[in-house]
Amino acid sequence: MSRSYLPHWMHWLGSPPNFYRFAGALRPWLIAAALVCAAIGLYGGLVLAPPDFRQGDAYRIIFIHVPSAWMSLFIYACMAVTGLVALVWRVKLAEVIAMECAPIGAAFTLITLATGSLWGRPMWGTWWTWGARLTSELVLFFLYLGVIGLYNAFEDRRRGARAASLLALVGIVNLPIVHYSVVWWNTLHQGSTVDWLHLSQSSIAPSMLWPLLVMTLATHLYFFASILGRARTGLLSLEGGKQWVRSLVTETSR
């Protein structure tokens, strides 16, 4: 057995019925913690924190924009790592988690693009610029869409998951290359180098920093809660013929 050096609890958790119960038990706690953190963070960010002396109240978009941007990268990394596990060891659970990461990541990337656009409009008078961060984020969005599209184009979903995992790994090599090539491209075309966040990142006051960090924690907790729920659903559809799913379905109907 090639997986024998993994710790025992990983074997236990890698089994779909065990994971299904474990995720179901953990999920309510995670989402509750995420909601509490979001409430505290938003109260701190929208009410307690003073307006920025240069940007006024428009900067308050930072409390959702920056955590979403961090999440879009973090989730991609999660997807690539679980995708690698899926490709090397062919763990069914890893395949499911990698593929269920993609829609959440795409959602956070979409939020980042939309809120960034809404922030850029009052600050720099434009909805969109071809800055390095923006372009990389857009490319990231297309990478997510590619992974989702490839996975859904397969009849056999386990094979689709492996193909899409390989695409995710190709993408993680590609992402830094895109970022640096766009930086180089921007130095070539001077004048369009308005990069959002540069103004606000110079020095951030503690009263603005702590809500940002709490919101980051909230989005991480949300992601873990969401991925557990999605993985449960994914396992249910993938293991439809197995006995544990059948008994589960018939039990809950009565």
Partner: peptide, 26 residues
């Protein structure tokens, strides 16, 4: 929001609507 309401609140609306979709679609 100091005159920026038409940018700040839509941003928060996008955040919550997209995440609500993500939460309820599974």
């Amino acid at each position: 929001m100091g005159g920026f309401a038409m940018y700040v609140w839509p941003a928060y609306a996008v955040f919550f609507i997209v995440l609500a979709w993500d939460w309820f679609s599974p």
